[in-house]
Design a protein around this nucleic acid. Structure first.
Lengths: 143, 143
DNA sequence: TTAATTACTTTTAAATTAAAAGTAAAAATG
DNA sequence: CATTTTTACTTTTAATTTAAAAGTAATTAA
């Protein structure tokens, strides 16, 4: 895997990986919507195409942002899980939530309300830690 | 301007706007590299094509993330400036920096060191406020 | 034992991105 | 004051990416 980076800027380099329509959506689905299998992602609200999903998952696995594993009692379903590198994207997801709530809501009339947005803003660090701990607890059975 | 949003998720909706290869790069160039004119962006390290730059700037202006103004003494150069909505993206830029420093550096051998990364991590809120204040001070003469 | 499910891949079409060249107005230069 | 250069784009065409649809193969359920 030879990633081509545009220049020596750390922010631009992060966006060389994360800056597209799907990567952070997939991370979000794993982190806060419990999506784990190919089918889970295919069936979610954003309706990603199978070909794109396959290529993005491969990319994320190569970058070690996610892992792909199988359960001993099921040879059919693959389980995709966030690594520490993937979990470390939580603060970015939280900041996207906050910016969106304050600045995108007015443009998207169907946007859902997040009851947790107030606590998210008032105590960001606690909220980020909660999301991460929650994810680890829920996925512990798979590792 | 009718933006098409994929679904009712706030995070996905934010990414419907920000999730591409260029938008956040342009914001970063304005926020921390003092880029203001079409020429400034064209000449920067990321080497964006003129046609793409024009379309992204128009898009950002329509979304009221940036404004386009002229100086009374120069009818040639247009000055692009971040609005409050654009400045509110600072926390996202900072989190991208931190994630990149910790997780992308190993993949991009030419990535530049940021001496400010330590203070950025130790006191995020102060750093974010500093970047925003700094931007406002530097651009005050244009408004 | 057959049908359904899961996880893809392949094919083809549509849309986006990129590179290059071109244009027009303003400003600088001789 | 005329010419050149600069700035800010637009247009054209090519390449790449994204998307939709259909197809395949292994596994599991009926």
């Amino acid at each position: 895997m030879d990633y081509k980076f545009r220049c020596n800027c750390p922010i631009t380099s992060a966006l060389d990986i994360l800056g597209d329509k799907w990567i952070l959506v997939i991370i979000k689905q794993m982190l806060i919507e419990d999506k784990k299998t190919f089918k889970d992602f295919i069936e979610s609200d954003e309706s990603i195409a199978a070909s794109i999903l396959a290529s993005k998952l491969k990319c994320l696995e190569e970058l070690e942002i996610i892992t792909k594993t199988q359960l001993p009692d099921n040879k059919k379903s693959n389980i995709y899980l966030l690594t520490e590198k993937g979990l470390a994207l939580t603060p970015i997801i939280v900041e996207l939530s906050i910016w969106s709530d304050e600045n995108v809501r007015e443009l998207n009339s169907i946007m859902r309300e997040s009851p947790e947005i107030a606590i998210m803003k008032s105590d960001k660090n606690t909220f980020i830690q909660m999301i991460k701990d929650n994810y680890k607890t829920k996925t512990a059975i798979f590792s």
